[in-house]
């Protein structure tokens, strides 16, 4: 820092003026991008409180209006049921998160602590399937579930989360750095069983990694559209992303305010999560990639 100041002094005002202009330009670009990030959501939240007539007069307002309740009534009178969607999504996402976090850590633990013959091949295999999209097996998955009579059930949405290759990969990297094998050894000397060691000693040590993975699997599951869309056909089973697709239907064609309200309700939980946990989320994105 000190060095920079010296250079600025030595070379006179030219450089500092140039860098001042450059800096202003950078700020302008960043602020523009920030506005583009916020504006669509801002318009959405504001229009959720405005009446159809107001929106028709002027579709953009930076301030809220007073029609929130009437929009809610219109929304509720039709097929869109945000409470049902919220509960269904909550059930699925909570189940997915619990399965992903616990079993990924267990699998990662097996890869880190035990010296078994298939360890390396198994890890290579996990890396290989990590990037294959689930969508390519969608048709077979649907037919299989249809045969089992498991369509319109939450189980086929939750259970596959037990095998989450990317989460295993993340947990393994974490355990390699954070789990001293001496702890495991000394617990064994104290006579603790292997399951007991995992649940009582490893789990608490891995809490930070579990928290990161919990956020990402919860959000990922909350936002998932493809699998629920092919499996769930009954409206009382719809998760939020399918529920939201109802807003495109003709019954809401002229109810602008309620469409914006419905959209707002689906992302409101995510906004809350993001405002509270953004630090960990951004950290998690950075962490996942460097090691990936």
């Amino acid at each position: 820092m000190k060095y920079n100041d010296d250079v600025g002094v030595r070379y006179g005002n030219n450089i500092s003026r140039g860098s001042y202009v450059a800096k202003t330009l950078k700020y302008i670009v960043c602020i523009l991008l920030a506005i583009i990030s916020i504006l669509p959501f801002w318009i959405m939240f504001m229009n959720a409180t405005r009446g159809t007539y107001e929106i028709q007069q002027n579709a953009i307002s930076l301030l809220p209006s007073t029609h929130l309740l009437s929009n809610m009534k219109v929304l509720h009178g039709k097929s869109f049921n945000p409470v049902r969607g919220f509960i269904n999504s909550l059930i699925v996402s909570t189940g997915v998160t619990a399965c992903t976090v616990y079993f990924s850590l267990l699998t990662a633990y097996a890869l880190v602590v035990y010296d078994w013959r298939m360890r390396q091949p198994f890890f290579t295999f996990i890396m290989a399937v990590m990037l294959i999209p689930a969508q390519v097996s969608g048709i077979g998955f649907y037919q299989f579930m249809y045969k089992l009579n498991w369509t319109n059930s939450f189980l086929p949405l939750i259970l596959p989360a037990i095998a989450a290759p990317a989460a295993v990969f993340f947990m393994r990297q974490y355990l390699l750095g954070a789990l001293p094998l001496d702890i495991v050894d000394s617990a064994r000397i104290d006579g603790a069983g292997e399951f007991h060691i995992f649940n009582r000693i490893v789990l608490p040590i891995a809490k930070p990694a579990m928290a990161t993975q919990a956020i990402f699997s919860f959000v990922g599951s909350w936002n998932n559209l493809f699998t629920p869309l092919i499996l769930l056909t009954k409206q009382d089973k719809y998760t939020m992303p399918i529920m939201v697709s109802l807003l495109r239907g003709d019954i809401y064609k002229t109810e602008y305010g309620s469409v914006y309200l419905g959209l707002s309700l689906t992302v409101l939980p995510l906004f809350i999560i993001y405002f509270v946990l953004s630090k960990y989320i951004i950290q998690g994105v950075a962490l996942g990639s460097v090691k990936g």
Binding site: Y114, W116, V129, G138, Q143, P156, A163
Partner: peptide, 23 residues
């Protein structure tokens, strides 16, 4: 090592590999 990997492997075989082959 094998025992702790069982849940992952079983679920992967049923819900990923089998549907892919089925497809």
């Amino acid at each position: 090592g094998y025992i702790f990997s069982i849940p992952f492997v079983v679920v992967f075989l049923i819900f990923s590999l089998y549907p892919t082959i089925y497809t």
